[in-house]
């Protein structure tokens, strides 16, 4: 295989890896603050993809597809805040003992509900929004226009996310909450409101992934399932609770899948990711950037 073809597949892996990472960062962000796994992240990805499809096809048109992304994110952010407020907040009010089980039951119930609601409302068929951009090149390498703009969109969202978390007052509250829930409360911060914002932000990142990837992976009620699986693989590889870990692991997963498809077989694309997960669990069970947690 020549170097150009190898580079092309490497870049394809990086492009898809960064987009998987967006999903994983949403899962990890929610976990880092609320200390719970949201098993229904794929359904917020699905919501984002449906919203983007309807906005592009019926309101904005193909030329203004990019306007659909922030609108989809904002709508799903609000949905997430409502779900958190009425279904998940009871975990943190009062003295519930089995929080993990409660979160698992509720979020899996949401997953089933939203999936079936989508089938009920719009049917089981697949939709394809119009292409975001024509095929292009990165240097001498041809790249799908949809993947290229999805990559740019993902990078923009990640930079905005970084700036909000690192540089704003809200970001300080979010970071503090992820590092010490009791400390942030006794410093005067309303942790219940922080949880609500964090959940909204996390699911809006999944919606962004769904909206950006809609023309690539299409729009249908179960399109979030694969993205969720990839997201959780990335979290195991990168380390639960580590956002840099999610980014690096996303890149790694994308590259492994892409190069595995080229050098071995494309039929086992999903298997390469699982092999990587198993290898990480054996070599470094806490993940590449994970830390052993000590709760004091």
């Amino acid at each position: 295989m020549d170097s150009i073809l190898f580079t092309q597949y490497l870049i394809a892996g990086i492009v898809i890896g960064i987009m998987y990472a967006l999903m994983a960062i949403g899962i990890t962000f929610i976990y880092s603050i609320m200390k719970m796994i949201n098993w229904s992240m794929g359904e917020y990805y699905m919501m984002g993809s449906y919203l983007q499809y309807f906005l592009v096809v019926y309101i904005f048109g193909a030329h203004l597809w990019f306007l659909g992304i922030p609108v989809s994110m904002a709508v799903v952010f609000c949905v997430g805040m409502i779900i958190q407020r009425y279904l998940l907040r009871p975990m943190f009010v009062g003295e519930m003992e089995r929080k993990d089980e409660y979160a698992t039951v509720i979020t899996i119930a949401c997953m089933v509900f939203f999936r079936n609601l989508a089938i009920f409302l719009v049917g089981p068929n697949q939709f394809a929004p119009p292409d975001y951009a024509a095929p292009t090149h990165i240097g001498p390498l041809p790249v799908s226009g949809n993947r290229f703009v999805a990559l740019i969109g993902t990078l923009v969202i990640l930079v905005l996310f970084y700036l909000i978390v690192k540089k704003t007052w809200v970001g300080k509250a979010l970071r503090g909450s992820s590092q010490n829930r009791i400390g942030i409360q006794t410093a005067g911060i309303n942790i219940l409101r922080v949880d609500q914002i964090a959940f909204g932000v996390g699911v809006s990142l999944a919606a962004a992934a769904g909206a950006l990837l809609a023309p690539i992976f299409l729009v249908w009620p179960e399109n979030g399932a694969v993205a969720t699986m990839k997201g959780f693989e990335i979290i195991v590889i990168g380390g639960l609770g580590s956002i840099p870990g999610s980014l690096v692991a996303g890149l790694l997963l994308g590259i492994v899948e892409s190069l595995g498809s080229v050098f071995i077989s494309p039929s086992f694309k999903d298997v390469y990711g699982f092999i990587l997960v198993l290898a990480i669990l054996v070599i470094r069970p806490t993940g590449l950037f994970g830390e052993r947690q000590r709760v004091a």
Partner: peptide, 21 residues
């Protein structure tokens, strides 16, 4: 109960995030 991955100064600024401040 400090915020380990925030700087000393950032730790000090956290109480200012409260609505009452």
């Amino acid at each position: 109960k400090v915020f380990r991955n925030m700087t000393v100064l950032e730790n000090m600024l956290v109480p200012a995030l409260s609505d009452s401040q």
